[in-house]
């Protein structure tokens, strides 16, 4: 018999999990890039990797305190954005897409290679960098919460920090998008020559947007590794596409979209994979093995992206009139 309670409780936990918060923040960065400025950044996984490795390496190899490690990660992603943007932002949007997808892969392979094993831990990655962050935890040791949301002090601490960051950056994004700065980047999204003819330095605005959204991705990368280890295999291109799926689900040019999109995405994914694993175990699908059931959810993500783009391109919260790719 299938254990429905376990399936639902696992799915409900995803609602406030740090992973959901990390994806929401990364998707918010992508909303600035793709949703508001029209920059096709396919390398958000690279920005997240820089956050994770920047934080972990500065803590482990150089013994930096938490704040300095965070700054190292953010600094690395600003430099990464400049390297990506300087040659490509003068060109058509598609070139940025090609360069970002390649650059993110290069980063991942550099982190995987054995050459830098002493720093990066190569394929097995890094762990043991959480001490400084755990020491900042003001919550006394113990177990808190109710029902499926029962965690120890450290787990609550990651959730509180993660979601606080999401809320702070959502408010920040809301502020800048409704300002004249937001008006300029929304103009650029549609026709950069028109904006240039009005005396705006389009190149500089695109660069600012690329850096800002990239920093969101970097901070998301740090939240992402707090409940787990830093493993290079996590930063494959598929990570970027999951974030795109979340963004499109919630609405590309919205603030709430990436956040609610991330919650829906993870709750459904957890529900579906929990259900499939148990259903196969119970013999409901005799033609399928456990391994196949595990892969099925990724197929489902692909189908979901296609259905959203075809039937609801503006996402859950989007305004169809204001959407870049619906003309």
């Amino acid at each position: 018999m299938i254990d429905w309670i376990a399936i639902f409780s696992n799915a409900a936990q995803e609602l406030i999990s740090p992973t959901t918060a990390a994806y929401a923040l990364a998707a918010l960065g992508l909303a600035i890039h793709f949703g508001y400025t029209g920059l096709l950044n396919f390398g958000q996984a690279g920005f997240m990797a820089l956050g994770a490795y920047g934080f972990a390496i500065s803590t482990l190899s150089f013994g930096f305190p938490v704040w300095a490690s965070v700054l190292v990660g953010v600094g690395a992603s600003v430099i990464f954005a400049l390297i990506l943007g300087i040659p490509t932002l003068r060109l058509r949007a598609d070139y940025l897409a090609i360069v970002t997808i390649a650059a993110a892969e290069i980063l991942r392979l550099v982190f995987t290679t054995n050459t830098f094993d002493s720093l990066t831990g190569s394929a097995s990655g890094l762990q043991g960098y959480k001490g400084g962050f755990a020491d900042l935890n003001p919550i006394p040791p113990g177990t808190y919460g109710f029902g499926p949301f029962t965690y120890n002090a450290y787990d609550w601490w990651i959730r509180i920090v993660g979601w606080t960051l999401v809320i702070v950056f959502a408010l920040l994004t809301w502020l800048i998008i409704r300002s004249p700065w937001g008006r300029v980047i929304k103009g650029i999204r549609e026709d950069e020559d028109a904006v240039r003819a009005l005396g705006k330095n389009v190149y500089s605005y695109k660069m600012q947007s690329l850096i800002l959204g990239g920093v969101y991705g970097t901070l998301a990368g740090m939240i992402f590794v707090l409940p787990r280890a830093v493993v290079p295999a996590n930063y494959q291109t598929s990570l970027t596409f999951f974030i795109y799926a979340i963004l499109l689900l919630g609405g590309a040019a919205t603030i709430l979209g990436p956040i609610v999109g991330s919650m829906i995405f993870w709750v459904l994914l957890s529900f579906f994979s929990g259900f499939m694993a148990r259903a196969v175990e119970a013999g409901w699908f005799p033609f399928m093995t456990q391994v196949q059931a595990g892969q099925l959810r990724f197929i489902l993500v692909g189908i979901a992206i296609m259905l959203i783009v075809v039937f609801r391109p503006q996402g859950i919260f989007g305004n169809k009139k204001e959407l870049a790719f619906v003309k």
């Binding site: 502020l175 300002s179 004249p180 700065w181 008006r183």
Partner: peptide, 8 residues
């Protein structure tokens, strides 16, 4: 307000 820092 078209300056990123002042826009906030």
């Amino acid at each position: 307000g078209e300056n990123l820092f002042r826009s906030v």
